[in-house]
Simulated scan of single mutants.
Amino acid sequence: MNTNSNIRMATLEDASSIYAIYEPYILNTAITFEYDPVPVEVFQSRMETVLKQFPWLVYERDGKVLGYAYCAKFKERAAFDWDCECSVYIDEKYHHQGIASALYEKLFDLVKQQGYYTVYALITNHHESSIHLHKKFGFTKVGIYQKTGFKMGKWWDLLVMEKRLYPYDKSPIPPKSINEISY
């Protein structure tokens, strides 16, 4: 079996493949707090916004997108400019094959090169495999938003985890856009 795998920057042409991975999470889980499917054009617009500043990576095998990961703005206020929030989603048929780890390894290297100091992950508190993945990459638990999301007939806690990329011992320079670094 040919297993030619590749991690690359997503393009807007990948929106349909990426959304096909994401939609079952919307419909069948509380992993995302999104309720309803969105048109691919809306999803593509979200990607376009993210890709102006941050990396959005896809993992391909034999030309098929099996997973994706990206970072995005954490909060709007200027003091948060050195923080970002990460997400990773893998096609349900390809879980536990190291795809999320491969994507995260590259993703965190890129945002560190950009000059981000802290990466946050917001995880539905019951999602043990996601918690384990983030701990593997050095994330620590910093808090819980209790009963903050209502989906699938119940209230869910949201675990906040953080990964520090640099020491906080100096005044930072503004992070570079993803297009200003080599990847």
Rank of each mutant, 00 (worst) to 15 (best):
D36V: 03
G63V: 06
K151P: 14
A72E: 10
V40L: 06
V142T: 13
V50E: 01
V160K: 00
G143Y: 08
Y19E: 06
V58M: 10
L66Q: 07
G138L: 11
D91C: 11
L165F: 01
E13Y: 14
F43S: 03
I173K: 04
F33C: 05
H127M: 05
E48R: 01
D109A: 07
V142S: 14
Y166F: 10
A79D: 06
I26C: 07
G115Y: 02
L57N: 08
Y145D: 09
T11I: 09
W155M: 13
Y145S: 15
T29I: 05
Y25H: 05
R46A: 08
W82C: 15
L159R: 03
V50P: 00
P172A: 12
L51W: 01
P24D: 03
T118W: 00
N179K: 00
Y145W: 13
T32K: 07
K136E: 12
Q113L: 08
L122W: 04
E92C: 08
V50C: 06
D36W: 00
H134G: 14
E180N: 05
V160W: 04
D62V: 03
H126I: 12
M47R: 01
N28P: 07
E180G: 04
S5T: 13
E128T: 11
V160Y: 02
G149F: 09
R8K: 10
I26M: 07
V42A: 10
G98W: 00
A30D: 06
I18A: 11
V58I: 12
P167F: 02
E34Q: 12
I90P: 11
S45V: 05
Q53N: 07
D157Q: 04
K64P: 00
V50W: 04
P175W: 02
C71A: 14
L133G: 05
L158I: 15
A20W: 11
E85S: 15
S87T: 13
I178Y: 00
T49S: 10
V88C: 14
E60L: 15
S5P: 05
Q113C: 03
K151T: 15
N28R: 07
S16H: 09
D36G: 04
V65E: 13
T49G: 04
D83F: 08
N6F: 11
Y104E: 07
E48P: 00
V38L: 10
K151Y: 11
H127W: 12
F139K: 06
